[in-house]
Nucleic acid binder design. Structure first.
Lengths: 186, 186
DNA sequence: ACAATTAAATACCAATCGGTAACAAAAATG
DNA sequence: CATTTTTGTTACCGATTGGTATTTAATTGT
């Protein structure tokens, strides 16, 4: 059982459940290694969660950034975001990042800092996307870009969180489509 | 320090922080009573949380039901909901019910059952409100009433949760107004 | 005033948490 | 071959969790 495998086991566990509900003991047991081995590799629970988050960001969140920076038009990009949030099978148990963000106060300083950093990057990406849409002459409602970016980000987060709660995919898609319709209205 | 005072202390503590982050030990200490006294009165942590939730529902959630069943028009009621979510000082640290609902899996069976019950009642109230608006000839977008009810409820929950996260009140009002504008558009 | 009952507090329980010290096996180095 | 260094394990630490058995204090009935 190699270190990268351990990280994979931890990511799966944190992802499926809430990170705050998975103990290091449970992870060592699932990975079939001893506790000191884990601590020698990652230093602390905080270090482990940070490593997991980084791996998750590279493996999953990157896809969202790709969608946002794809240079497609407003409607097409919004549709891709809706598809991702309401249909991507990886989001069936929710998004690990959003779970961590929702329980930010329960994280150690390292992981919390990274969560805030990723969150800021996300906001920036949403804002850049909306700005470029506006520059391209596509109206995005009267609202300022930063407010729209936050709105967009929160609606995506809400949709994915609802998927983790076991809500019906079609229902979620309906609601998200409705929420984002404010961007594509006259 | 009477029993009702203890309930008040517990409600304040659960409300300000996340219920999952407040131990019975902490509550007995804050209330200045001994642990067996609390257990004699409420039976278990689950029993205490249930009692707190009931008290909270009567003291706070009832106001939301009053708004919904007020019989006012669509716009007026939506505005009242927006005011409540984004300006009511009691929501400055979020809504205890939404906090409990977000961490449903961490609750005992009694409290969890009540949370689900209240949630269902909320959905029904939202649906009844939208139905009456539609009956009164006010268009609420093309969508089915049940989907609209869920959307409305989740947007309110999102706004209040963001207040708990310390987000700017004006910003929250902007976003909620935007989200609910789908109901009052041609 | 004394006995019986109720209320409350002290002190404890087992389980679990994150984290580590002490120790055994294996691999690399001289 | 002998030695050092790395790897991994067992067994433990103090703190905290929800929950209780036992004992002390206050109240009540007679």
């Amino acid at each position: 059982m190699n270190n990268d495998d351990v990280l994979g086991v931890a990511m799966a566990a944190y992802w499926q459940a809430d990170p705050a509900d998975v103990s290091v003991n449970a992870i060592t047991q699932m990975a079939g290694i001893s506790k000191p081995s884990l601590y020698r590799e990652f230093g602390s629970e905080d270090g482990l969660k940070l490593a997991v988050l980084d791996r998750y960001a590279e493996a999953v969140l990157s896809d969202m950034f790709v969608i946002l920076h794809g240079g497609k038009g407003l409607r097409e990009t919004l549709d891709a975001l809706i598809d991702f949030a309401s249909d991507d099978p990886r989001m069936e148990t929710g998004c690990l990042f959003y779970k961590m963000r929702a329980g930010k106060h329960r994280l150690g300083p390292l992981t919390r800092a990274r969560v805030e950093q990723i969150d800021a990057a996300g906001q920036a990406a949403y804002a850049a996307f909306l700005q470029s849409a506006r520059d391209a002459g596509e109206g995005i409602g009267g609202l300022p870009v930063t407010a729209g970016a936050m709105y967009l980000g929160e609606q995506i987060a809400l949709a994915i969180t609802q998927r983790a709660a076991g809500e019906d995919k079609t229902r979620i898609r309906e609601m998200l489509t409705l929420a984002l319709s404010v961007f594509t209205r006259p």
